[in-house]
Design a protein around this nucleic acid. Structure first.
Lengths: 211, 211
DNA sequence: AGAACTTTGGACTTGCCGGTCCATTTATTG
DNA sequence: CAATAAATGGACCGGCAAGTCCAAAGTTCT
């Protein structure tokens, strides 16, 4: 590895990543060429390969990491503070707003679809993103259990997994159809059922259970 | 349009679609070239363009249609017969089995991501798929309401939308991580909450509502 | 200052892949 | 059995985009 970046070098590298990310968002991954990135970031071919010796794949992986970070930071601080029903509601609105604003391009999904097969690193990025995301939701559920607002018998991890799946699916539907209704439905129904669980006297019927 | 296909011609066209679909599944969309399809289906370049005059995009769109059909037919007859809790459970198992068998390649997601931007037809295919899918789930929910197994005050379309989103998200998570746990969680929690709704005396707190 | 290293510019190569073309064979129809 | 149309084979083209290379300019450190 040639990793002796000067200040200037690090700045250039970052500029390339952000420019590439913007290009991917706007034009889609398949239509984004190194030359587009080069033009947008005012760099030369040699710079691209200087900072990303393995070429396009390495650059796209860096873009994926960059976008994965944004997904979580865009949800803060609400995601880290699911400690009351109003807080859950605020988080819900934040998620909806984020994806409304993003519109119909999900850089990550495309990135992973494109890299996934060849580049193991791409899957690692998404796996880590999902793991962190779910851990935060899960913590929120458990907190609500400790303050008696959610049925304590409920499996917090399973509930968080289901909610996270709903969000992902809501985004997928939005990407395909342009409508955000499913994302809202997933959040509203998911959170609504958490709230409702407290009122259940009989135990929740567990359809599938695992150890 | 030159659409005077003989028997033989129609068969060849179909062979091309299925071969292309298989190729996309195995190698991914970005790595699939017309030459791969040509080799796999024992056809010539001129045949590809004879049956798909608009080239690769037209072929991929046909593949998308083919795969979209399979998604629904693979769930039948269970999806069309959600008339009892055991039936819902059977459908759940069918969905899980289908995606377990498919493994980590979802041709449709890649196809749409790739075509989506340029080809409006691709989005139409997915939109129609989702519409039909949701309508079937929705019908199942309503049926359970009529026989008193689901709270009649519940919004069947919203519940179906949330469940569908959960499934989509479960598949997305599986594609990224290789684990089917989220798909199972989404189905189990979603169906479990439908079952539990019947026991609620107070009305379901509607977080968000629409007309 | 000057040696060693990093950063940058941009021309050039290379190979792939979508798409075109025309000749030939096979089917259909009266 | 012609005549017409459809199906097929495969050579060829053209462009695009990834990746290479070397020389020049700037930076850092002693």
């Amino acid at each position: 590895m040639n990793r002796t970046l000067t200040h200037k070098g690090a700045a250039t590298r970052q500029r390339i990543i952000e420019g590439a990310a913007a290009e991917v968002r706007e034009r889609g991954i398949a239509a984004t060429t190194l030359d587009d990135v080069r033009a947008r970031t005012s760099t030369s071919k040699s710079q691209l390969f200087h900072y990303f010796p393995d070429g396009k794949d390495e650059l796209l992986l860096a873009v994926a990491r960059y976008e994965a970070d944004r997904v979580l930071t865009d949800q803060q601080p609400q995601l880290g503070d699911l400690t009351s029903w109003p807080a859950w509601s605020a988080w819900r609105d934040r998620v909806v707003a984020r994806y409304l604003g993003q519109g119909m391009d999900c850089p990550l999904s495309g990135l992973v679809a494109h890299l996934g097969r060849a580049t193991p690193g791409a899957q690692a990025v998404v796996t880590e993103l999902l793991r962190t995301w779910q851990a935060e939701i899960s913590a929120g559920v458990r907190h609500m259990q400790t303050i008696g607002e959610v049925d304590p018998r409920l499996d917090a991890d399973q509930a968080a997994a289901a909610l996270l799946a709903g969000i992902q699916g809501g985004v997928v539907v939005m990407l395909a159809t342009g409508r955000i209704t499913h994302l809202e439905a997933a959040l509203d129904v998911g959170i609504g059922n958490l709230r409702a669980s407290r009122r259940l006297d009989p135990p929740v019927p567990s359809v599938g259970s695992s150890g």
